[in-house]
Design a protein around this nucleic acid. Sequence first.
DNA 1: GTGAACCGGGG
DNA 2: GTGTACGGTTCAC
Length: 590
Amino acid sequence: MVLLDIDYITRGEKAIIRLFGREKNDENETSIIVLDDGFQPYIYVVPRDIEECQEQIEELNVEKVEKVEMKDLAKNKHFIKVTFNHPQDVPKLRDKIRDLPSVKDIREHDIPFYRRYLIDKGLFPMAEVEVEGKTVPPLDITEISNNYLANIFKLQGEIQPISSDFPDLNILSLDIEVYNPKGMPKSEEDPIIMISLSSNQGLQKVISTERSSLDFVETVKNESEIIKRFVEIIQKENPDLLIGYNSDNFDFPYIKDRAELLNIPLNLGTDGSQLKFMKKGYANAALVKGRVHVDLYLIMRRYLQLDRYTLERVYLELFDQEKQDIPGDEIHHYWSEGGEKLETLFKYSLDDAVTVTEIGEKMLPLTLELTRIVGQPFFDVARMATGQLVEWYLIRKAYEQGEVVPNKPSASQYSNRRGKKASGGYVKDPVKGLHENIVYFDFRSLYPSIIISKNVSPDTLVTECDDKKCHISPEKQYMFLKEPAGFVPSIIGNILHERMRLKTMMKESSNDEEKKFLNVQQEALKRLANSMYGVYGYSRFRWYRLECADAITAWGRDYIKKTMEKAEHFGFKPVYADTDGFYAVYHGNH
DNA sequence: GTGAACCGGGG
DNA sequence: GTGTACGGTTCAC
């Protein structure tokens, strides 16, 4: 099955992991939930006195205490691994453990349970997994309501990743319109007047209370029926992905508010569960269990560099086509006036949903691929900043290499870091005037190359060394061991190597679909590699090292200046330079 | 000059 | 949920 999402529930004292999957055979699509009660949370403890430490922790209400040897920034060290009964015991007990006199520090104490599961089991969301023993339906371990849409199984044997092609997903987009004569809509007063739906399976529908001659409009008797019908269609279409535009903060919260007011259940999940919201800082994320809700607005902000991110602006950018728009404050006029105006509103509303599907089909493959590389849920990856993506990728790699992950910075460490900044790239102010015969030198892979060739990594940074054993950076003379390969450099090396392999496969492939698929994969790797050089200077990063960030840019400036000098020697006069490259005019004197 | 407050998208 | 965005700009003093 394709692994769409993951969470856990608690039954009795036990945490049970739920894996939400989808199986497609011929014409049939089945939602599946696999339950695994055989996984327990743990943290690592850095002891001052290992024996005393072990004894003291054993007195607490924990499952298991054991000595382990792990790497900490490439150095072998002794840790105590403490296993807990339940994920929520971790925040309850970790402060107690940290405060023990025999304990120096605690590590990996803030890794969400479901993420830990994915990492430790080697599972990747949006890829195929093989489930053994899933024919046993042990329904006593969870309460089952009658309207479960999915088949539920208890995991009996192993769950294993298997290689797979790009998943073939059923995508449904939605967009709501609201009657709001008094400015921005307020969910306490302003009703939903239509919900538009569009899928990649051919569905195009507007549910509304007004009649229309347009065949995509389905008329129901009141607002309650709009919402009920919406829930029905979601259950029937059973999409893997739900997408919207600003739907985390508008459409879904609004639907939820109105449904509550009208007392209508919103059981949209494949487990029959209600629409939920997760607080992510100050922002909301709308969550439908068993499906993945993606807000394209966030994705667009990440991938496009625009002045504005309205649906119209994004559509123009991606498809080079103007999209008609009814200003928000005029929608109620179109609704009240009826006739032609209303038909226009119906068309506009459906068009928004269709547009969201189109944008999703174009933009989501990259995020899907990043999900399969980083190995965290699609829902999360679609909402992660690049720094977070890199971090979770590295956390998985750390596990694979037996490295204990560094802690997140404390509040004081964070504010301390924020005050400091690594030096930037080299900038040469442009020479004024109109230049002809311009040549551009592109250095976009300069920083990843520096990290690899100079082995720039927190675990290779040393304070005493010589130029036989170390690379020494220009200016501030930071020293990095030449051997062994550092944690971050080796990972970037693997990414770039894998990317080259995919590019070669792409060139050799004669199948257009395969080419496209390989291209998305190599683009995702490029994104990941390119975001990795910035993170040494990112204040929240677990592997933050200002020295590394500084050394990289220092080498960068050194390289670009030397290259410009060389170019000048060959008759190219640089007219402008900024960080990754420079423009030069050829005088042809040579 | 500095730190707090606000803003994005959506109707 | 083993949790608490983000980066840029404007405002208020």
